[in-house]
Simulated assay, not measured.
Amino acid sequence: MIYLQSTYLLVNEPTIQREYAPLEAIKDNYEKWVISLDDTTLASNQGIKHIQAWNLSKALL
């Protein structure tokens, strides 16, 4: 199982916190990813990975 949170862009800290918060609230060990259209990827945050939307199919392999 993988939890996915999608968003358009992670443009500022409040947006990042808003998009990561639902995944941070889940207290199990399944993978958690935030998917966006950002040009760069953010570092893993509390085990939550940031994936660019166009790389999602590769990440799911």
Rank of each mutant, 00 (worst) to 15 (best):
P14N: 05
P14Y: 04
A25I: 00
L10H: 03
E19M: 06
K27S: 15
D28Q: 10
A25K: 13
Y8K: 07
S6Q: 07
Y8F: 15
Q5I: 04
D28M: 02
Y30G: 02
E24I: 15
Y20C: 09
Y8D: 01
L10G: 01
L9A: 05
E19N: 12
Y20G: 05
L23N: 01
L9I: 03
T15M: 04
R18L: 04
E19S: 00
A25E: 12
K27Y: 02
T15K: 07
A25G: 03
Q5H: 04
Y3H: 03
K32L: 07
L4W: 13
S6R: 08
T15N: 07
L23I: 10
K32C: 12
P14S: 02
D28L: 09
E13T: 15
Y8M: 10
L10A: 04
E31A: 13
V11C: 04
L10C: 00
Y8T: 08
V11L: 03
Y20M: 06
E31W: 12
N29H: 11
L9P: 01
L10T: 00
E24R: 13
V11N: 13
L23H: 11
N29F: 12
A25M: 06
E31L: 14
L4R: 05
L10Y: 01
P14T: 12
T15E: 02
V11F: 06
Y3N: 01
I26K: 02
T7C: 15
T7P: 03
L9Q: 03
K27M: 05
P22I: 00
Y3Q: 01
T15Y: 07
E19F: 05
T7Q: 00
N12M: 06
K27P: 08
E31S: 15
A25Q: 02
N29K: 13
I26Y: 03
R18P: 02
S6I: 11
P14K: 07
W33M: 11
A25S: 12
I16C: 04
Q17V: 11
Y20F: 13
Y3L: 01
T15A: 05
E31P: 14
Q5C: 08
Y3G: 00
R18T: 07
A21C: 08
P14W: 02
Y8E: 11
E13Y: 09
